[in-house]
Design a protein around this nucleic acid. Sequence first.
DNA 1: CGAAGGAATGAACCGAGGTTCACTATCAAA
DNA 2: TTTGATAGTGAACCTCGGTTCATTCCTTCG
Lengths: 205, 205
Amino acid sequence: MVYRRTESATQRLADKRARILKAARELVAEGGWSAAQVDNVAVKAGVATGTVYRYWSAKAELCAEIVASVSSREVSIAKAIADADGSPVEKLQSAIRTFASRALRGRRLAYALIAEPVDPEVETVRLDYRAQLAHCFERILREGIMRGVFPRLDPAVAAACIVGAFMEALVGPLAPAKGTGARADRHLIEQITQFCLRASVGAPE
Amino acid sequence: MVYRRTESATQRLADKRARILKAARELVAEGGWSAAQVDNVAVKAGVATGTVYRYWSAKAELCAEIVASVSSREVSIAKAIADADGSPVEKLQSAIRTFASRALRGRRLAYALIAEPVDPEVETVRLDYRAQLAHCFERILREGIMRGVFPRLDPAVAAACIVGAFMEALVGPLAPAKGTGARADRHLIEQITQFCLRASVGAPE
DNA sequence: CGAAGGAATGAACCGAGGTTCACTATCAAA
DNA sequence: TTTGATAGTGAACCTCGGTTCATTCCTTCG
């Protein structure tokens, strides 16, 4: 008598896995990595502590999966922009604006994923994400330089500067997560975009 | 019979205090905050664990003092530049270059002081430092805008962008502390300066 | 229904690291 | 030299969080 999982049973498992993952992600989004203790996650997911270890062999793996799943979405968006048609200026502007506005929608999560350090294992995944993101900017910059519309600059350094600039301006000073309202957010995004654009392109509008 | 410390005894105490502080700072400079465990610090300072608590009531206080002492020097330098005579462009350039080159001399320490999170208590001190630093840039920017030599931009946001830009470009990608040599360092500093300058001033050279 | 095996449980375990404290060593005043 | 007070010691303690595992629950299949 071999136990064979029904389709619905498999589904239930997957659901539970997803539920735990979601709970963990939400905790990170609310209070950063330190809020995502295994016990907390379990409680929030309506599950026992040990159950978490049925799906991930260690906490670090769970965290890594959160980083990977959330950030892969962001990176693919950035890639799409970099690959699209259009002038480098437009693309750069679009990439910065898009990324900034998306990050603002979940500041705490964005901070946790971009800046807040974690276990070395998770760190690897996170740095990879950041590198990929920077790489998207780098490609756009490089294109602009080749076409002669951007001034001569080291694309790698400039890309890092761009990433750093909105990291700090968006999620850095907001550590106490002040909800400043949509109006202020728009202003912030606009200013950051201007800053990076001017730095990369030379002239603003 | 009242015990009164001799001058030399007081001196010895101060020396020991300084020695412990230095040991802790060096550990942070080598391996970040996590390397500065109380036991490690004590060993490095040639002192027993408990002795540390004779000079600081908690580890957080020791850490806070490290942050404060190192960063106050940096801030005062930045302030001096902001206060000096000269055109805003020159001052901005000088401030960025100075800060970047100083940070590069001790990347790991710079990272720990600028970016790496710690206990909330220490965090307060660190954020204060970062805010002061940003404020120096903000003042220079504001002056440039008032004089009409800088384009219109939100000085607070731009200052945050500047700080973030070199934070990322200088100490961000260097997590594995790659010693790239003086030549590469100079290039890096030059590029970052250009980037920030162009963003703030409009035209590069 | 009943056996078999996977899924879930949560209390106990364990290591890491900060902190304490009873004790010893040292120093200055009498 | 004795004595009162401070400095120094380091093993033990405590807390926090991740991990384990003996036990129980639940689902499938004969």
